[in-house]
Write a protein that binds this DNA or RNA. Structure first.
Lengths: 208, 208
DNA sequence: TTGCCATGTTACCGACCGGTAACATCCCGT
DNA sequence: ACGGGATGTTACCGGTCGGTAACATGGCAA
C-alpha cells in the first residue's frame, strides 16, 4: 500500500517493529524457533518463517542453503541453549551433583509447565523427521546422548552405584514428561511426577 | 501395459498380490498403518496410501471423508489393538495384577525392539498433530488416559499405596522408552531400562 | 562521490498436496 | 439375463510446497 517505508531514520531500537532489529539471520532463527516449535516443523513453510522474521524467502536462502539446514540450525540453537542452562545451573551448585540435576530438572519443568509448552523441541523433531539422512538427526542424537552422559556423570560423582542406569532412567522420565504434556495434557502434572521421581531415584540408590 | 488383467478367475487367496485380497477399506487401513507409522503422518499423501493398498484415491475417499478421518481411524485401530493385547495378557495372569503389568510391558518391549520400530504410534501422532481440533486428538488423549488408568488400577489391586503415582510413572517410562528409540537409537536398550525400572517400582512401593 | 554488498521485491518454476467429477468396469444376487 | 452397487480409471481443480532468477534498493566504507 504505502509507496515506500523509508524504514525510519536508520535508527536502531526501532520499537514497534517485529523483532527489535536483530540482523536478519538471527530474526529468521528466532521465528523458526517459534513456528517450528508451535506448529511442527513439517507444518510450517519457509515462506511463513521468512514473513514472521520480517524478511523474505530470498534472504532466508542466502543464510541457509535449504529448509533442512535451517531446521538443523534451529536444533543446534536449542541444544546449545539447553546445554548452557545445564552449565549455568551447575555453577550454582558446586560440589553438589545431585542438587545440580534436581535444580536443572526443576528449571526445565518450569519452562514445560507454561500452557503453550509442547515438550522438548529436540524430541519432537526426532519424531517429526524419520529420515535418517536429515541433517538435524546428528544434532538430535548428540544432544540426547549428551544429556544422558551428564546425568550419569553427576550420578557417578555423587557416589551412586548404577550411575549409568540412573542416567538412562532420568532421560526416559524427562522425555516421557514432555510426551505426556502433549497427549493427556498439562493438568495431569507430569512435571511434578518427574521431579518427585528424580529426587527419589537419587536418594535410594542403595536398593539392589 | 497389458490391455487388461482379468484379475485372475475371481478366486480368493490370489497369492502374490499385495494385500492378500482383503476388502478395500481394510487394505487401506493396513497400508495407512504401515506408511503413517514408518514415514510420519504428514510425510505420506493419500495417493501413496491408496497405491500401497492396491486401490486408488477415489475408493479411499468413499470410505473415509478426509485424510484427517483416515488418520483418526488409523489411530482408533492402533488403540484398539493395544487395548486388546492388555486384555489378552490379563487373562493369562488372573489375580496377578503386577504380573499382568510386567508381562504386558515385556510384550510391548518385544515389539518395540524390532529394528524398524519407531516407538508408540499414538505418541508420534500426538507430536505430529499439534492442532487441537484434529479428529485424532480425542483418540490420543483417551488412549493415554486409559493406559494410565489401567496401570493405576492394577497397582491398586496389587495393594500398592501411591497407585495413581505409579500409573503416571509407568506411563512416563513407557513413552520415554519409545522416544529414546528414535533419538539415541535401539542399541541403548531403553526397553531393558523400562522393564527393570517397572519391576523395581512395583516391588518397593513401601518407600514413602 | 563512488561503488560494493547485504537486503528487499516480484515473479516464476515444477512438484506435490487434499479433494472431486465423470465415466468405465466388474461382481453378485435375483 | 439382468440390474445395481461397489470399485477402478482418468483427468482435473486450486492451493501450497521448496527453491531460484532477475532486478531494485539501501547503507556504509573508501
Amino acid at each position: 500500500m504505502s509507496p515506500r517505508k523509508t524504514r525510519a531514520p536508520a535508527t536502531r531500537i526501532d520499537a514497534a517493529e517485529a523483532k527489535a532489529e536483530l540482523p536478519p539471520r538471527a530474526r529468521i532463527l528466532k521465528s523458526a524457533h517459534e513456528l517450528f516449535y508451535g506448529q511442527g516443523i513439517r507444518g510450517v513453510g519457509v515462506d511463513a518463517v521468512a514473513a514472521a522474521a520480517d524478511t523474505n524467502k530470498m534472504t532466508l536462502y542466502r543464510h541457509f542453503t535449504s529448509k533442512d539446514e535451517l531446521v538443523a540450525a534451529y536444533l543446534r540453537e536449542v541444544a546449545a541453549g539447553i546445554e548452557a542452562s545445564w552449565e549455568r545451573i551447575g555453577r550454582l551448585h558446586p560440589d553438589d551433583p545431585k542438587g545440580h540435576i534436581i535444580a536443572w530438572l526443576k528449571d526445565m519443568g518450569r519452562q514445560m509447565e507454561r500452557p503453550e509448552s509442547r515438550g522438548c523441541p529436540i524430541t519432537n523433531a526426532a519424531i517429526e523427521l524419520p529420515d535418517e539422512t536429515h541433517p538435524g538427526r546428528q544434532v538430535i542424537e548428540a544432544h540426547k546422548r549428551g544429556m544422558r552422559r551428564r546425568f550419569a556423570e553427576n550420578a557417578r560423582k555423587a557416589g551412586l552405584k548404577r550411575a549409568e542406569m540412573i542416567g538412562e532412567q532420568l532421560l526416559l522420565l524427562l522425555d516421557g514428561a514432555g510426551v505426556s504434556l502433549q497427549t493427556i495434557g498439562h493438568e495431569s502434572r507430569p512435571i511434578a511426577t518427574l521431579i518427585r521421581h528424580a529426587e527419589w531415584l537419587l536418594e535410594m540408590d542403595e536398593g539392589k
